[in-house]
Design a protein around this nucleic acid. Structure first.
Length: 859
RNA sequence: GCCCCUGUGGCGGAAUGGUAGACGCGGCAGACUCAAAAUCUGUUGCCUGCAAGGGCGUGCUGGUUCGAGUCCGGCCAGGGGCACCA
């Protein structure tokens, strides 16, 4: 008996796949195509368990589909631009390019050890000029197509470091390095006109039936289409009125105040003469730019002293406030507040002692106290205290208000989106340079395509504050492409979300001399199955959908939706450990004693075990995949990733689980190895008849094939794993050595090898070879089951009384008709003591028969 | 604050509205062994009972149904996202 030794085995089969170029795909191949893609990694340094999970899931799909006869495209690349490289440059003095390429080399080697069925000849890195040159071309096409433009937008500004901060670099309103209070600063920046596609992006969600419903809901909410009314309020003593946007024009008679954003032009005007307003605006700006910070802050306002006239009751005036919760980006940057029917407005009104007039009464409960206390009433109802609206329902009232205000020329129905245009400018070095030149005479001038790519200068400095491209002594000085006079290069680079918005298209022809080879793209796209983390549910996936539409618009792509099916996987977590001083410990520093108490491996001091959290460097609860592969091999890591937890849920990495996965591999190996020599030759003719035990093995085999095939299609990998266990248990239990037993056993073991091949491919190859085959299992077709062998003719029927299980009837023929089941149940109800007792002698009112499962006696 | 999701034994989890706890981990008992590891066999939701059995049980709470882990309402807890982390 030999023991399964993963290290040499995995090396051997990886070399074999490599030598045969087993995973190279080409579009000329006539078989039906299947493009499976996992979200490409950011090269942070080493792969982590989240990557192992993501790429294992994708590999199972890729190998399964290959087995089913598809021409599979399964590529890999690197989302290689981004902030961490620049931070590393600043902190460690290593150039972003060197840091990134070094990380890629490390991580590529780690991924290759996992034995993924990837076509590495298609590898791309977004920081390579061979990628970003094409992205620059796409940018210019978007610019020409009217989808890229410039406007002013606010950024987080660190006044000490003199640099723009990412939202994650703003902690409690302060710069993460300097600790200085962050300011908002307006810069002229580049935008993509994603809102031009808002309606298409919204309506097409209905067609994405193979996406998780929750992702579609999140995107729908993010786009946030609303039908409302833009209307103007006259301001006492001012020529200029205030324009507001509302989705609840029906509540206009419940208005108690107007609120405008601190970034509204009127706010600036007021702040210029009013020190209190100035202070309030400054306070709003100190919140930073993230919606989370703004919405999470206490609702505050500043009374400007201005009074606005109610559009219908001109003698009624409303106070005008500056408010920290009104966003300039949404609507007109100004609202009217109706405290009775909007929670935020209510909180605000209570704080500043404003009236709370109620104008909507719920339909169903006439006497539901009409007084509003702490909770606003936002439901449907009938209008009251509202002049000509009284008695109308909310929808009719909205319509009536709109009609009258439109007639009066002070209102206009308007469809609005929460979605804002995509700001793509980054004042950073390590990104794709935006290929334009600013000329005093000609304005913004595109860099001629013949001069692309605009390469990043290698000799930038990272030890200063600000944008290294801006600080570079010469790079930005160029001649205007049009008039040849001295001009300035654009020093903003593109958001890295742009890089990841078309990489899936580039993979179809990664070395093409144009950005997208239409022939290849048309052949492969859309991505048939996309797999990645739920954290990308909105931004990345929405940007990629937009960009695909933009490339369709500019003729680079022939489709509008990039991903036909989406699967979102859960995170990988681990227990957390703290020592006596409250310092985090790595799992490798901790061991458990016999009593199950955790202690420090070296010091022996007690360790506090905390709950499982997402693996992160800050909590130190990370397990290095490389170490696991060294210890158990890639197949064990893959098997554990697929066992137990459903892929869409979070998974907790445990040593015990990994060890258990390894033991299972050994057990299966023993089963194959000990059987192999006694089995009939591969391809031997089946015996004429099968005994009872052989028949049982065959039933187990064909059921396993049927169930596991269905489970893999539905991403129920953990259930598929459980079926494999059941199958292995059934085969192990069969000890017969007659020719029919051995033939059935070969059939079972061959099916087993094929069924586990997508999950633990090296092991499957070794088992396949041990069973006497000289072919590779990667080239074998996925097994088919015989339907007749999966069925059992008799089954056990459960008997319930009033829905509670009280007994069962054995050996009932499959598909027995309802009347017979009823008769049988009534007979058994008399015969079986348990059922009889439960009936308590009461008359049976009703008998419910669920075919082949249950009969329920209702008394 | 807003949007979305999740909650089942000691643990990970299974269960087209139809016998809750498949499968695995761990535990307990036993076999093998000088011993240990490895392996194998049995057992394992909780309470009660000698047993047969009975009762309880899918975060809490109310409802729909012959029947609810599953559907609906309200709550609690944890997680993801919130536009410059990727």
């Amino acid at each position: 008996m030999s023991r399964y030794d993963p290290a040499p085995t995995e090396r051997k089969w990886q070399a074999a796949w490599d030598a045969r170029r087993s995973f190279a795909s080409n579009e000329a191949d006539g078989r039906p195509k299947y493009y499976v893609l996992e979200m490409f990694p950011y090269p942070s340094g080493r792969i982590h368990m989240g990557h192992v999970r993501n790429y294992t899931l994708g590999d199972v799909v890729a190998r399964h589909k290959r087995g089913q006869g598809f021409n599979v495209l399964h590529p890999m690349g690197w989302d290689a631009f981004g902030l961490p490289a620049e931070n590393a440059a600043r902190d460690k003095g290593v150039h972003p390019k060197a840091w990134t390429l070094n990380n890629i080399a490390t991580m590529r080697a780690e991924l290759q050890r996992m034995g993924l069925s990837i076509d590495w000849s298609r590898e791309i890195a977004t920081c390579h000029p061979g990628y970003y040159a094409h992205q620059q071309k796409l940018f210019l096409d978007l610019l020409r197509g009217g989808l890229a433009y410039r406007k002013k937008a606010r950024v987080n500004w660190d006044p000490i470091d003199q640099t723009v901060l990412a939202n994650e670099q703003v902690i409690d309103g302060k710069g993460w390095r300097s600790g200085a209070p962050v300011e908002k600063r307006e810069l002229e920046q580049w935008f993509f006109a994603i809102t031009k596609f808002a309606d298409g992006l919204l309506s097409a969600l209905d067609g994405l039936t193979e996406w998780p419903e929750r992702v579609r809901i999140m995107q729908r909410n993010w786009i946030g289409r609303s039908e409302g009314l833009r209307l103007t309020f006259e301001v006492v003593g001012r020529a200029q009125p205030i324009e507001i946007y509302t989705t609840r024009p029906d509540t206009l008679f419940g208005a108690a105040f107007l609120a405008i954003s601190a970034d509204h032009p009127l706010a600036e005007e007021i702040a210029a003469k009013d020190a209190g307003a100035r202070a309030f605006v400054a306070e709003c700006h100190s919140l930073g730019t993230s919606e989370e910070a703004i919405e999470g802050a206490e609702k505050r306002g500043y009374d400007t002293g201005l009074k606005a006239r109610h559009p219908f009751h001109k003698d009624q005036v409303l106070p005008v406030y500056l408010a920290n919760f009104v966003l300039i980006e949404y609507g007109t940057g100004a609202i009217f507040g109706c405290p009775a029917h909007d929670q935020r407005d209510l909180d605000f009104a209570r704080k500043y002692g404003l009236p709370v007039p109620r104008v909507v009464a719920p339909v169903d409960s006439a006497n539901d106290g009409l007084e509003i206390k702490e909770v606003a009433y936002t439901g449907d109802g009938i209008l009251m205290n509202s002049d000509f609206l009284n008695g109308l329902a909310v929808a009719a009232a909205k319509d009536e208000v709109a009609k009258r205000l439109e007639a009066a020329g002070v209102g206009k129905r308007e469809v609005n989106y929460r979605l804002r245009d995509w700001g793509v400018s980054r004042q950073r070095y390590w990104g794709c340079p935006i290929p334009v030149v600013h000329c005093a005479k000609c304005g913004v001038v595109a860099v001629p395509e013949a001069e692309l790519p605009v390469l990043l200068p290698e000799d930038a400095r990272f030890d200063q504050s600000g944008n290294p491209l801006e600080n570079h002594p010469t790079w930005k000085n160029v001649a205007c492409p049009q008039c040849k006079s001295p001009a300035r290069r654009e020093t903003d680079t593109l958001d890295t979300f742009v890089d990841s918005s078309w990489y899936f298209a580039r993979f179809t022809a990664p070395r093409a001399t144009i950005p997208v080879d239409r022939k290849a793209a048309d052949a492969w796209l859309p991505v048939r199955q996309y797999i990645g983390g739920i954290e990308h549910a909105v931004l990345h996936l929405l940007y990629a959908r937009f960009f695909t539409r933009a490339l369709h618009h500019t003729g680079h792509l022939g489709l509008e939706e990039p991903f036909a099916a989406l699967f979102t996987q859960g995170m990988v977590g681990h227990e957390t450990y703290k020592d006596e001083n409250g310092k985090w410990l790595f799992p490798t520093d901790v061991e458990y004693d016999e009593q199950g108490n955790a202690r420090h491996k070296e010091t022996g001091r007690p360790v506090t075990v905390g709950r499982s959290e997402k693996m992160s460097k800050s909590l130190k609860n990370v397990v290095d995949p490389g170490g696991i592969i060294d210890k158990y091999g890639a197949d064990t890591a893959r098997w554990f990733m697929l066992s137990d937890s459903p892929p869409e849920r979070d998974l907790e990495w445990t040593d015990a689980g990994a060890a258990g996965a390894f033991r299972f591999l050994q057990r299966v190996w023993r089963l194959v190895d000990e059987s192999a020599d006694a089995l009939p030759l591969a391809g031997a003719r089946p015996p004429a008849t099968f005994g009872a035990e052989a028949a049982r093995v065959r039933t187990a085999t064909h059921r396993a094939i049927a169930k596991i095939s269905a489970d893999l299609e539905r991403f129920r990998f953990n259930v598929a794993v459980a079926r494999i266990y059941e199958f292995v248990n059934a085969v192990t239990d069969a000890k017969g050595t007659a020719p029919d037993d051995l033939w059935a056993r070969r059939e079972a073991l061959e099916a087993l090898a094929k069924l586990i091949a997508p999950m633990i491919p090296h092991f499957a190859e070794e088992a396949w070879a041990r069973l006497g085959h000289t072919t590779l299992i990667v080239d074998e077709p996925w097994p088919a089951h015989e339907e007749a062998l999966t069925r059992e003719d008799v089954l056990t029927l459960a008997v319930q009384v009033n829905g509670k299980l009280r007994g069962s009837i054995e050996n009932v023929a499959r598909g027995l008709d309802e009347a017979s089941v009823r008769a049988l149940a009534l007979k058994e109800a008399d015969a079986q003591e348990r059922i009889k007792n439960a009936l308590e002698g009461k008359p049976i009112r009703k008998v419910i028969v669920v075919p082949d499962r249950i009969v329920n006696l209702v008394v």
